[in-house]
Amino acid sequence: MKHPALEIRSLTPNCNETLILTALEKGARHGYQLALDLEERSGGFFEFKHGTLYPILHKLEKEGLIAGSWSDEGLRGKRRHYRLTEMGQEYARAQREQWRTFVDHLVDVIGRSEP
């Protein structure tokens, strides 16, 4: 099992992975659905360029955290959808804990709003 660890230099990729894994907890998704879900749930804050999603999805799949499969959707052709594996669920939970701790400490330092 991969051990999550937040390091300053890997914050962005780590954040992207956590967002994708969390979005997949709601069920299997196509790549484009993931991008739109994250955009909608964050009120447009996380606007993923889909090009950046592919390397993350493929990396997570290689690591066994998600599993991808093709589905034949008739006239629309073949689509690839991804689902979270058991290992991915554990990893996502641990990652979220790490992020909450990180955000709490960050807010302790910088404050929730300007004084």
Binding site: Y32, F48, K49, H50, G51, T52, Y54, P55, H58, K62
Partner: peptide, 18 residues
């Protein structure tokens, strides 16, 4: 097309994965 935007950086990341 704006959403897909496969940048050179994304291609390099894909090459690193595969």
């Amino acid at each position: 097309l704006g959403h897909i935007d496969l940048s050179d950086e994304a291609l390099r990341d894909l090459a690193r994965v595969h």
